[in-house]
Design a binder for these strands. Structure first.
Lengths: 154, 154
DNA sequence: TATTGTTATACTCTATAACTATA
DNA sequence: TATAGTTATAGAGTATAACAATA
């Protein structure tokens, strides 16, 4: 423990956070964490973390997609995807099939159970996003999505 | 390794990511990561991670602020702040002084070196954010900040 | 030689419980 | 009894290197 030097100084009654609240990175991170926090709660019944939801959802909507394609689309590193894919397969939500033209790769497909679960999960995701964005008008929400895309798709 | 069942299936030529790109949480996270990635590169000369920058910047602009106030403002848990504060103190950028009215707390203050470094770092932060947001007009950028705040300050 | 999927592993980040000193 | 700061530690998330099988 470092000892404080004994000098009398005024204390802060109201914190001024403008130095960070003017930064795009700070606000984007805080907003993302706020949404993810609610996501974790509402998706607990489906045992899907945000990344699991993204992966499973992509497989449902892109039958036959490969791990490599999932990684590059979602920004996941291959070693970190392996466990997620195996867990989803173990739960019977997806299965691996031989890729038609590339013997190294597997085509990933959602099972009937996987499709059914994801239908529920996607409805829940839309509902929770409606809640989180309840302070925004429909127009503002659309604008927010468009501007966020312009940042990371630059 | 789980063996793929040998069934011929079509492969995906163009991945459809609309199922996640319509979600606020997904886009906010991708945008935040994109900004943080550039931040890490440009702030390396100052040896400041995003959280270090936020903490040090808050101390510069709020002389006498306590650890507790930093935690609640920035959303950091107290045990995780201890190491950052000690590291900044060891570098001579900040110092702890006795709190005028609460014997348990320390008032945190930036040193002359800390103020000088943060001036440079803040200029670099503004510059990199200008770059990251180069696809946005000044008006769009202002709107983006406002809408992000409405999400996490709900 | 390059790429897909995988293993092992290290590093960072985040979270919880419990302790001390003071209010 | 409650709070500020701290310690120790567990867990989750993210990263790199290296390998076998296939292109």
């Amino acid at each position: 423990m470092t000892k404080a030097v004994p000098a009398a100084e005024p204390c802060i009654d109201e914190v001024d956070a403008s130095c960070v609240e003017t930064l795009l990175g700070y606000n984007a991170r805080r907003a993302a964490l706020a949404v993810i926090d609610v996501f974790l709660q509402r998706m607990a019944p489906y045992k899907l973390r945000p990344v699991d939801f993204s992966v499973a959802s992509m497989i449902v909507h892109n039958p036959g997609i490969t791990s490599r394609q999932l990684c590059s689309t979602l920004g996941i590193l291959p070693p970190n995807l392996v466990g997620m894919i195996n867990a989803l397969e173990k739960r019977g939500l997806i299965d691996k099939r031989a890729h038609p033209s590339d013997g190294r790769a597997n085509g990933l497909h959602a099972s009937a159970e996987g499709i059914a679960l994801l239908q529920q999960a996607q409805a829940a995701a839309l509902a929770l996003e409606d809640e989180v964005a309840s302070n925004l008008t429909a127009s503002e929400r659309k604008t927010l999505l468009r501007l966020l895309k312009k940042v990371y798709q630059a």
